[in-house]
Simulated assay, not measured.
Amino acid sequence: MRKVLLLLISVVVLGSCKQTNQDQANENRVVTKEAKSDSAYEALVRKNSSQFHKNFSAGRFTDNGPLTTEDIYVNSNGKIVVGRDKFVGRLTRYEKPFPGLEVNDRIMIVDGNIVAFHYLMQATHLGKFGDLEPTGNKVEAMSSEFFTMDENGLMKDLITISQVDKFLATASGEEHIEEHQKVTLYPIDHSVPKAVTKKAADLYLRHFNFRDWDAISELLSDDVQANWNSNHVSGKEAVIEKMKERLTPFPDLTYQLDRSAAEGNRAAIGYTLHGTHNGLFTYKGKNYPASGNAVQTREVQHLEVSADGKIKSIIMMSDQGAFLKFIDAKKSK
């Protein structure tokens, strides 16, 4: 099973659903409550970044090559890939174990030369994957990507952050999915100024790092909705409690910003979690007592902001299993 996880982490996650009405929505940019005119450069960035998904779904993997720089740098769940040829060569790695893998977009944000995606990976496990024989199980997990484009609208840098543990759990049958979720592209409301959204995202990180719970409470709407690594939480008190729970195993936990993007009422923030395992960490029913080890992993949150600067919805995702490589598993009980 460990080989499977290592293989999964090494895979560059880049794909999309088939040419459907969702793709058409991407082509028409994003359904908005108020029209927005892209600059010529942003229009090119939007067109090229969405083309990656179309090419993948059509099996035209080599067509993605010309949409990247020759020296593209990729960090996919901690696996580093450098160069166009290596990047394109890895796009086929899900073909046999998960034929027809779809990456169904929920959010697409274009902010200058940065594009942020949030999507669901959905497939059926029909081929051998590492040392895991085909199970026929439906597979589903959340993922996000940050594209950085060059002056010609070509992708020069890619960061992928996925629920690797969720993907593996559904493939193996540890978690069962009866049916894949229906996924639609969320609208962007451009009547909310981007500056308002960016400020809310900035304060959200700063207030957490400073443990200013009163300020966070003021920043969240009363009825904020959160998808917290596939666990749904409602209301500001419950969301703040969820944040505080993270500090039990990692009391000094902080978020170091790596990438951010905002468009209209939506923002994406990708960051590195830094902390020390000085408290009980519970994962999949197992307890891991404090080890004193430093931990570091990536995470992403997508925020929806109202015109008054309040955060009204949150989608957070990470690979929770990634913490284990920093924690001495022999201390589990």
Results as ranks from 00 to 15, higher is better:
residue 191 S to Q: 07
residue 275 G to D: 04
residue 266 R to H: 07
residue 218 E to A: 10
residue 286 K to R: 08
residue 254 T to L: 09
residue 284 K to D: 13
residue 290 A to L: 03
residue 287 N to M: 09
residue 243 M to V: 12
residue 241 E to N: 15
residue 212 D to K: 00
residue 244 K to N: 05
residue 196 V to L: 02
residue 191 S to V: 06
residue 265 N to M: 08
residue 215 A to R: 01
residue 233 V to R: 00
residue 209 N to V: 08
residue 241 E to Y: 09
residue 269 I to C: 14
residue 251 P to N: 07
residue 194 K to S: 12
residue 273 L to Q: 10
residue 192 V to P: 04
residue 237 E to I: 12
residue 269 I to R: 11
residue 284 K to G: 10
residue 233 V to T: 04
residue 224 V to I: 11
residue 215 A to L: 03
residue 206 R to V: 14
residue 283 Y to P: 01
residue 220 L to Y: 04
residue 266 R to E: 08
residue 215 A to H: 01
residue 180 H to W: 03
residue 187 P to Y: 05
residue 222 D to A: 14
residue 208 F to L: 11
residue 270 G to P: 05
residue 228 W to F: 12
residue 269 I to M: 12
residue 244 K to R: 10
residue 275 G to P: 08
residue 273 L to W: 07
residue 270 G to L: 07
residue 249 P to W: 03
residue 255 Y to S: 14
residue 207 H to F: 13
residue 277 H to C: 05
residue 222 D to G: 10
residue 219 L to N: 02
residue 198 K to S: 15
residue 192 V to N: 03
residue 229 N to Y: 00
residue 235 G to L: 02
residue 242 K to S: 14
residue 291 S to I: 06
residue 248 T to S: 13
residue 278 N to A: 09
residue 226 A to K: 02
residue 216 I to L: 15
residue 244 K to C: 05
residue 291 S to W: 01
residue 281 F to D: 06
residue 258 D to I: 14
residue 182 K to E: 00
residue 225 Q to I: 15
residue 270 G to T: 06
residue 218 E to P: 07
residue 225 Q to R: 11
residue 223 D to A: 13
residue 207 H to P: 11
residue 251 P to I: 03
residue 284 K to V: 08
residue 261 A to N: 05
residue 238 A to V: 03
residue 256 Q to E: 15
residue 260 S to F: 10
residue 219 L to R: 00
residue 211 R to Y: 05
residue 216 I to T: 10
residue 208 F to C: 06
residue 253 L to E: 10
residue 180 H to A: 05
residue 250 F to Q: 03
residue 233 V to P: 02
residue 185 L to W: 04
residue 212 D to H: 00
residue 199 K to E: 13
residue 210 F to L: 14
residue 214 D to E: 14
residue 196 V to G: 02
residue 205 L to I: 13
residue 195 A to P: 12
residue 243 M to I: 13
residue 204 Y to D: 14
residue 240 I to M: 09
residue 287 N to P: 10
residue 205 L to M: 15
residue 282 T to E: 14
residue 229 N to R: 01
residue 262 A to F: 01
residue 193 P to H: 08
residue 246 R to I: 11
residue 253 L to W: 05
